[in-house]
Amino acid sequence: MGKLPGIQHQQAIRALQRAGFEITRQSGHVVMSDGRRTIVIPRNNPINAFTMFGIIKDAGLTVDQFRELL
């Protein structure tokens, strides 16, 4: 596992859309789903690396797979 630099929430949303997730709800957080998994992305800029790692794990991706989607 490599380190994750501070990622803007818009970048994370676009990368997860490339992975097959769609936005289902938006407010202070963005809720995305691929039909099996649901993930929540905070609208913080940048997203904390620890939080981003948890989102990536919940999405069923590895850090390297996520970086390829950025």
Score class of each variant (00 low, 15 high):
residue 5 P to G: 07
residue 70 L to M: 14
residue 7 I to S: 02
residue 9 H to I: 01
residue 11 Q to L: 09
residue 24 T to A: 06
residue 51 T to Y: 06
residue 32 M to A: 00
residue 57 K to V: 00
residue 41 I to G: 04
residue 51 T to P: 03
residue 59 A to N: 04
residue 55 I to C: 05
residue 7 I to C: 03
residue 21 F to H: 03
residue 31 V to H: 04
residue 68 E to G: 06
residue 39 I to C: 02
residue 24 T to I: 15
residue 25 R to W: 08
residue 11 Q to G: 08
residue 9 H to Y: 15
residue 5 P to R: 07
residue 1 M to W: 04
residue 59 A to I: 03
residue 49 A to I: 07
residue 23 I to P: 06
residue 9 H to L: 00
residue 9 H to N: 09
residue 61 L to Y: 04
residue 6 G to R: 12
residue 59 A to L: 08
residue 65 Q to T: 10
residue 3 K to W: 11
residue 62 T to F: 04
residue 19 A to F: 09
residue 12 A to N: 09
residue 35 G to M: 01
residue 53 F to E: 15
residue 64 D to N: 12
residue 30 V to I: 15
residue 61 L to M: 04
residue 13 I to S: 05
residue 28 G to L: 06
residue 22 E to V: 12
residue 14 R to W: 10
residue 48 N to P: 04
residue 51 T to K: 14
residue 30 V to K: 12
residue 47 I to R: 03
residue 64 D to I: 02
residue 55 I to E: 05
residue 6 G to E: 11
residue 16 L to N: 01
residue 62 T to D: 05
residue 15 A to N: 09
residue 6 G to Y: 11
residue 3 K to P: 12
residue 27 S to A: 14
residue 66 F to Q: 03
residue 62 T to P: 00
residue 13 I to V: 13
residue 21 F to N: 00
residue 37 R to K: 15
residue 57 K to T: 02
residue 42 P to I: 05
residue 60 G to Q: 01
residue 33 S to R: 06
residue 64 D to H: 06
residue 35 G to Q: 02
residue 9 H to S: 08
residue 40 V to M: 11
residue 35 G to R: 00
residue 12 A to Y: 13
residue 61 L to V: 00
residue 7 I to M: 10
residue 10 Q to M: 11
residue 48 N to K: 14
residue 38 T to K: 15
residue 34 D to C: 10
residue 67 R to V: 13
residue 30 V to Y: 10
residue 53 F to L: 12
residue 5 P to S: 06
residue 57 K to C: 01
residue 35 G to A: 00
residue 24 T to M: 13
residue 22 E to A: 12
residue 23 I to M: 08
residue 70 L to K: 06
residue 61 L to W: 05
residue 48 N to H: 09
residue 53 F to T: 10
residue 58 D to A: 13
residue 14 R to Q: 14
residue 21 F to S: 03
residue 11 Q to A: 11
residue 20 G to M: 11
residue 6 G to M: 11
residue 62 T to L: 05
residue 8 Q to Y: 15
residue 52 M to Y: 04
residue 41 I to F: 11
residue 7 I to L: 07
residue 14 R to I: 09
residue 56 I to E: 10
residue 61 L to F: 06
residue 37 R to S: 09
residue 63 V to M: 04
residue 37 R to G: 07
residue 57 K to P: 01
residue 1 M to T: 11
residue 14 R to A: 13
residue 35 G to C: 00
residue 43 R to T: 14
residue 26 Q to V: 13
residue 6 G to Q: 10
residue 67 R to L: 15
residue 6 G to D: 12
residue 42 P to Q: 07
residue 35 G to D: 00
residue 12 A to C: 15
residue 16 L to Y: 02
residue 27 S to C: 07
residue 15 A to T: 06
residue 31 V to Y: 07
residue 68 E to I: 01
residue 62 T to K: 04
residue 14 R to F: 09
residue 13 I to T: 03
residue 63 V to S: 04
residue 34 D to I: 09
residue 3 K to F: 13
residue 16 L to V: 06
residue 13 I to N: 00
residue 4 L to Y: 08
residue 36 R to S: 10
